[in-house]
């Protein structure tokens, strides 16, 4: 490597893609070759320019909505349901035929679906810039923000003292249900608390579910359905749940 210039290896050096041995060789070549040194400096400057002027492409909310819609249309499970709806409008006979055809195929349990939806909402929110629409640890800022945007008023509480800092809130969807998302942070972890009205539903004690390294906790109390979802430990989620379930004021 001493005779000729580094050439392409200079880029692999810049990208930390050389083996330790070859990186050492490149390093010593750079020590004695002003031309390669200059080229390396130029490539570093070029990299700075690229980083400065080309941000990664953040997908818009509309992008996610469209994507979800088209994926769901392609979901064979949903197709079955859509078909059944279409058949119903086509006439009772067609509906009956389809009913017989599909009766033996069990639909996905709705509770599973809901966990998936909640998890998808959580993952969407982790995309940079999507976590909060209103960012504040002041519940007196967050609570009024929801007013006028939702037909219900979610309970907004901060538990900074207990290790769960309120970061803000946003509007989200779980299926077609418009929900309030309260965002808490515990250390490095974001926790989504999704809440929506469940009028007439009986209270359900918190029930935990784990999927793909994420924990979800669901309960119903005082006519509100709650979901907590995060990658923090289940015990911590339970702790936040009991804080949220403690009567306030």
């Amino acid at each position: 490597m001493n005779e000729s210039h580094l050439g392409e290896a200079l880029h692999a050096y810049l990208d930390n893609e050389l083996s330790a041995e070859r990186a050492l060789e490149a390093h010593s070549h750079l020590g004695s070759c002003p031309s390669c040194r200059r080229e390396l400096a130029q490539m570093r400057r070029l990299r700075d320019v690229l980083h400065r002027s080309l941000g990664p492409s953040e997908p818009s909310v509309a992008f996610f909505r469209t994507l979800q819609q088209s994926l769901r249309q392609a979901d064979p499970g949903r197709w079955r349901r859509r078909l059944a709806r279409a058949a119903w409008s086509a006439g009772p006979l067609a509906a009956a035929v389809l009913l017989v055809l599909f009766a033996l195929q069990p639909a996905r349990p709705p509770s599973n679906d809901l966990t998936g939806e909640v998890l998808a909402a959580h993952l969407r929110s982790l995309q940079p810039g999507h976590l909060t629409d209103v960012m504040s640890s002041d519940r007196h800022t967050v609570k009024p923000w929801f007013q006028g945007k939702l037909p219900f008023s979610p309970p907004v509480l901060d538990f900074s003292g207990q290790g769960f800092t309120l970061e803000g809130g946003r509007l989200d969807y779980v299926g077609s249900q418009e929900v309030a998302a309260l965002v808490y942070r515990s250390g490095q972890h974001a926790i989504n608390a999704l809440v929506w009205p469940a009028p007439g539903e009986r209270d359900v004690a918190p029930r935990a579910e784990t999927r793909a390294g994420f924990h979800a906790l669901h309960w119903v109390s005082d006519g509100m359905a709650w979901w907590l979802v995060s990658d923090i430990g289940e015990a911590d989620l339970q702790r936040l749940a009991s804080l949220l379930r403690t009567p306030h004021q």
Partner: peptide, 24 residues
């Protein structure tokens, strides 16, 4: 089996930024 749309989203959505950067 064919995963549900939600299961697929869980895998695919975290990569949508990189996908969009490449497509752009």
């Amino acid at each position: 089996v064919q995963p549900s749309a939600e299961e697929f989203e869980r895998i695919a959505l975290p990569h949508s930024r990189a996908a969009l950067t490449l497509a752009r």
